[in-house]
Amino acid sequence: MEWAQVPDAAAFRAFRQRCQDGSWQQDRGGLAVSLQLPPPGCAIHQLKCRIDVPDVPAATMYDVLHDSEYRWEWDTNVIDTHGIAQVAVNADVGYYAWRCPKPLKNRDVVMLRAWQVEDGYHTIINFSVKHPKYPPRKDMVRAVCLLTGYLVHSTGPNSCSLTYLAQVDPKGSLPKWVVNKASQYLVPQMLKKLHKACVQYPAWKQQHNVNMKPWLYPEQNKLPVLALSELALQRAASLENIDESSLAEEKDESSDRGALEN
């Protein structure tokens, strides 16, 4: 069993490097996408998406990514999201469940999330962990997040760029249309909605616990403290494999709903 650890400075540097490395396969309208498909017999793929945001400061983007209360306002994929426990001043454990494109089963994940602000970069890193009180649910497929996160880079006093990186095992044999839809439409669409949410966030926050930002002020964090020894890394091998590779895409009127990644 591999025990969970809070990412150190080297891990944050490595994540930043991974976000910045490599060529972008699609780049249009200030939004770029890079997809690395897995080799045969492997379910793990890596997706990167970057968006340039000319009218939102990096600090606001960072606040929106953290604010779980506000996520209910803009994330149409969310089924459930909440914090479970804090494990460090810059790390916590949380639960997230989301809708997948029909007819796939919905997914959920328990993740350790860590964050850092340094040198004009705001970074959030997530990876899957096992929590004793959050076993896999019968009505969900427990996905495995090897590494996901956000890199927000300030490009001016009121502008920034956001890179989203996901290295995920969705735990199951998926049809090709799912991966294609996620990379070409769902994730880029999510980032566009996130941009719009960021523009609206300052006005919303004025009416909702305006000074409550535990990701900036650790003393505000009211989650119970959990020892890292209670958490182990979640690996795909310990979970039931779900074969959905033969499922055909269903027409969904709310076509922007349901994403492969979280």
Rank of each mutant, 00 (worst) to 15 (best):
D169G: 01
Y70C: 01
T60L: 07
V89M: 10
Q5N: 12
D256N: 10
G156K: 09
R13Q: 05
L194D: 05
S173N: 07
D169Y: 02
L146P: 01
D243S: 00
Y95S: 09
D256K: 06
Q207N: 13
N211I: 03
D75P: 06
L37Q: 12
S245H: 02
L239H: 02
Q234H: 04
Y62S: 07
L35R: 04
V56K: 06
V109C: 10
I124N: 02
L104A: 11
G172S: 01
P202T: 01
G41D: 11
P218H: 07
I79Y: 02
E230L: 11
S68M: 04
T155A: 11
F12W: 04
W215P: 01
E240T: 10
D108R: 00
H131C: 00
E2R: 10
T123M: 05
L174M: 13
Q206L: 08
D92V: 07
V110D: 06
R28D: 09
L65N: 01
G120L: 02
Q17V: 02
P188H: 08
P40V: 09
C145Y: 02
P214Q: 10
Q86E: 11
N221E: 13
S68V: 03
N209F: 04
V141N: 09
V141M: 09
H122P: 01
L147V: 02
Y121D: 12
Q116S: 13
A227K: 13
L247N: 09
T155W: 05
H82E: 12
H208W: 06
C198W: 03
M190S: 13
L174A: 08
S183L: 00
A43R: 12
S183G: 09
A166M: 04
H122K: 05
R142C: 13
E69G: 01
V53L: 14
N241V: 10
A88K: 05
T123C: 03
F12V: 04
P132Q: 06
P175F: 13
L191P: 07
T76Q: 07
W3F: 11
K251F: 14
L174Q: 09
Y62G: 03
V152R: 08
A259V: 13
A85K: 05
D8P: 12
Q86R: 15
Y164Q: 04
R99S: 15
A14R: 04
L65C: 00
